[in-house]
Structure formats: C-alpha cells, structure tokens
Amino acid sequence: MEGVSVSYGTFHALRPLDLTIGHGDFLAILGPSGCGKTTLLRAIGGFQRPTSGRILIDGQDVTALGPEKRPSNTVFQGYGLFPHLNVRQNIGYGLRIAGRGRPDIAREVEHIAALVRLQEYLDRPIDKLSGGQRQRVALARALVMRPKVLLLDEPLAALDLKLRQTMQEELRRIHREIGGTFVFVTHDQSEALSLATRIAVMNEGHLVQIGSPEEIYQRPKSRFVATFLGEANVLAATRRAGHVTLAAGGSFTSRGADGDIAIAVRPEVIKIAPSPGAAGLTLRGRVRDRVYLGSHLRYEIGLADGGRLVAAADTADRRNLPAPGEEITVGWAHDAQVLLDT
C-alpha cells in the first residue's frame, strides 16, 4: 500500500500510510474502536475506495478493482453464510459462481473441509451448527477460492472465551499448512499476540507502529502503544546532560536531548525486594494493594511522587511477600525499560 488514505468530507478515517505485507505473513491490524483498522481492511479487500494512494497485490495495482476481481477473499464477523444452503453448498458456492465443474467443486470442497475439520458436517444445515462450526464454514468458503490474501474482520469476536482460544489454535494450524497471507482485524491484544507474526498498531487513523509481537510488546515506540498492548508503567523523568532522573527517584545515564521524557516498564520485569547490589534501577514505595491472580500476585505500589507502579510477583516464590501498607523496594534491569518517543 502506498500513501493510502480514506476521507469522508472533513473526517479522515484513514490518514495517508504505507504498508507492506509480506507473502506468508499473518498480520494483525490492532487498535481501539474507531481507529481505522476496519477501514484499512475494507480498502485492501476492495469494499472501500481509497481517497488517495494505491493498493498492489503481488505487484498488480488493484486500487480500481472491486472485491470480486481481486485475488483476495474476506471472512466477515457475521459469517455471511446462506441459511438455505447446507455446509457443502455454502463452501462450494464461490466455485459454482466461478463456473467450475461439479467434479472439481466436489474435490475442492472435500479438501478444504478436511483442512478445517468439517468432513462429517458437509450435509448438515447451517442452523444446526454451533458458532465455532459456522466460523469454520465461513473460513472454508473463503479458503476454497485459494486467495492470495485472506482477510478476516474480527472473525472470533462472537465466540466465547474457550471457543475463541480453540479457533485461534485452528487458525494458526491452517496458516502453517497452507502458507498463505492472512490479514485480520482485532481490538483484542491477546488475540493479536497469540496469532500474528506481525502486528500493525493503529490509532486515530494513523499507523503508529508495525513489527513482530515481541518487538511491539517489548519495544513500544510511544506511550499509546505501551499502554494499549498489555499493561505498562509509564514514569515521568527528566534528562540533563545524558543523565536521566525519575520524578519518583532513581537515575541512570542515557544519551539524547535534554528535557522531559518518559520510560515504560512492564509489570512482569519488576522485582519485589531485589537482591542488595543488583544491577539496575531501584525505587522505594508503599504497597497499596495486593491481588492473587493464580499464576502471579499483582501489586499496586505508591511512589514518592504520588504516582503508582504495578508489579507482578510469581506466586511460586514464597519469600516474605509484602502485604498492603508495607514499605518496599522494587527494581528492574536497565535493559528492561524503554524510553518513549512521546
């Protein structure tokens, strides 16, 4: 995509952006409601004509082509299945419209049904299927057309937690087996982290960061990315002559321009009562709250500047874990913190 934007009068749903999606990528477009992620997906699929820029798929300029003429297919959140057709007929519908012969359609439908594990349901009516089975039918109907790009618009949003996790595993397996290019829209951070090979984070129509899940999570470029994807502590600091001082106390060296800055620290990298002399940065605070969450304890700690810090302690570590009201020392390694651009 080159300089693609979408505007409705004075409202800019999508600011001009460049985006390259590699062959075989499983790209998640992630962001809050109204950020432009669905508009971007619709533009890729041909359902939304860009105001400016152009879209290329495998080197072909498809900007002026409708969805039926693009080498892509879309799975919508509402599935869009035909209730009067059974599973077999729904999956093979696109092939029939394309004029493929009956033996060819039957062979392709059987192959895709096996891929999505629907062989035993091929003659079942749509209204006799569970939500997860309907999702598989919608996926099979798109895949049977062998698109170069498969687009998924929040495909798991209507499923309950257990079923959503199962379908995430299925999507990962299918992507590995067919090796295609998948692009999906989601507002669910955990879903993006668990499914995607790359994540594109959007906010207010802008593409603000793109990278691997590890890169986006561990090295966010802005306060928005740090706090939207997972939980992060953002601490105010000032840099003078290469020396950074936190408002809550503590300091370290860092090259860069003088002025007010911020650092981000994930709760899981923070150590409660670190060993004396441990390398890194330490702060003093008082425990405001402690919550047991099974795999870990979530601590809320009040800091000297009136701010707060959230830390996660492993519940397997039974060493004198502090209780609410106690004063404690917390710390983290210098390479576990990130200096934010904004």
Rank of each mutant, 00 (worst) to 15 (best):
Q165K: 15
T63F: 10
R173S: 14
P83Y: 02
E154S: 04
L152I: 02
G131C: 05
A106P: 05
N90W: 03
R88C: 08
T51V: 10
P83M: 06
D123L: 08
L81T: 04
L150V: 04
T166R: 15
G179V: 06
T74R: 01
G101I: 02
P155M: 07
R136A: 15
S52H: 04
I126T: 06
G180E: 04
D61L: 10
P83F: 12
V149G: 02
Y79M: 12
T166L: 11
G94E: 09
F182W: 02
R100S: 08
V62R: 01
R176F: 12
G78A: 12
H84M: 08
I112W: 12
V75G: 10
R102G: 06
A138V: 04
G53P: 08
R96L: 05
Q135D: 05
T181M: 01
K162E: 15
A113I: 13
G53F: 03
I126Y: 10
H84R: 08
L159Q: 14
L156A: 06
G66H: 05
A64E: 06
Y93P: 13
Q48Y: 00
L65D: 12
S130N: 06
G101L: 07
D61K: 04
G78N: 15
I174N: 15
Q89K: 13
L163M: 11
L159Y: 13
G180D: 03
D127H: 14
L151N: 00
D127S: 14
V87M: 11
A113M: 10
I105E: 08
G99K: 05
G180W: 00
P103K: 11
Q165P: 05
I105D: 15
R96T: 10
L150M: 02
P83A: 01
H84Y: 07
I97H: 09
R146D: 09
M167A: 07
G78L: 08
S72E: 03
R136W: 05
T74G: 09
M145L: 15
I55E: 02
L129V: 12
R124M: 13
S130L: 11
G59D: 11
K162I: 10
Q77I: 08
N73L: 08
R88Y: 07
L139S: 02
R176L: 13
L115A: 14
I174H: 09
L65E: 12
Q77K: 05
A106M: 11
V87W: 15
I91V: 11
D153C: 01
M145V: 14
T51H: 00
R173L: 11
